[in-house]
Amino acid sequence: MGKLDGRVFVITGAARGQGEQEARLFAAEGARVLLADVLDEPGERVAGEIAEAVGKERVRYAHLDVGREEDWAAAVAVAKEQFGKIDGLVNNAGILRFNELTATPLEEYELLVRVNQIGTFLGLKAVAPEIEAAGGGTVVNTSSYTGLTGMAFVGAYAATKAAVVGMTRVAALELAAKGIRVNAVCPGAVDTPMANPALLDPDGPSPEAAEAMAALYRKVVPLGRPGRPEEVARLALFLSCEDSSYVTGQPFVIDGGWMAGVSIL
Rank of each mutant, 00 (worst) to 15 (best):
G261W: 13
A184Y: 02
L89E: 07
E49I: 03
K3V: 05
A156Y: 08
V232L: 11
V262A: 13
A74G: 07
E110C: 04
T149E: 14
E132K: 14
S244A: 13
L173E: 03
D37S: 15
L239T: 03
R16H: 11
G84M: 11
V8L: 02
P193D: 09
T142H: 09
G135Y: 13
A128Q: 06
F238W: 04
P229E: 04
P105R: 14
L199T: 03
A233V: 13
T104C: 14
A172S: 00
V140M: 00
L111A: 15
V78A: 10
Y109A: 14
P187T: 12
L4N: 11
G261A: 09
A14T: 04
G43N: 06
P205A: 07
G67A: 01
E57I: 09
K178N: 01
D5E: 08
A260C: 14
A172C: 00
I254N: 06
E110Q: 15
G249D: 01
L216V: 13
V38Y: 08
R97W: 05
S263C: 11
E29A: 12
P197Q: 08
G204S: 09
G17T: 03
L4H: 03
C241H: 10
W258R: 15
I254D: 10
S144M: 06
A74W: 01
M1S: 13
E230R: 09
Q250R: 03
M1C: 03
I11H: 09
F9D: 04
K161D: 06
V59F: 10
R225P: 15
V220Q: 07
Q82P: 00
D191V: 06
N99T: 12
L101V: 15
G150C: 12
V54N: 13
G137Y: 13
G147I: 00
A134C: 10
L89P: 02
A176C: 03
E44C: 10
V247W: 00
H63R: 14
F98C: 01
T142S: 06
A198H: 09
E70M: 11
G204M: 11
W258K: 14
I254S: 08
A212S: 07
G204A: 13
P251L: 04
A172L: 02
A233C: 14
K161T: 00
F9V: 04
K56T: 12
G67L: 07
S143T: 02
M194G: 05
A260V: 15
N91W: 01
Y61C: 06
F252S: 06
N183L: 01
A28V: 05
A158H: 00
A195P: 00
R225C: 06
T192C: 10
R114H: 02
A36G: 11
G6K: 11
E52K: 15
R58E: 07
S240M: 08
K80V: 15
H63I: 10
A27F: 03
K125M: 07
N99E: 15
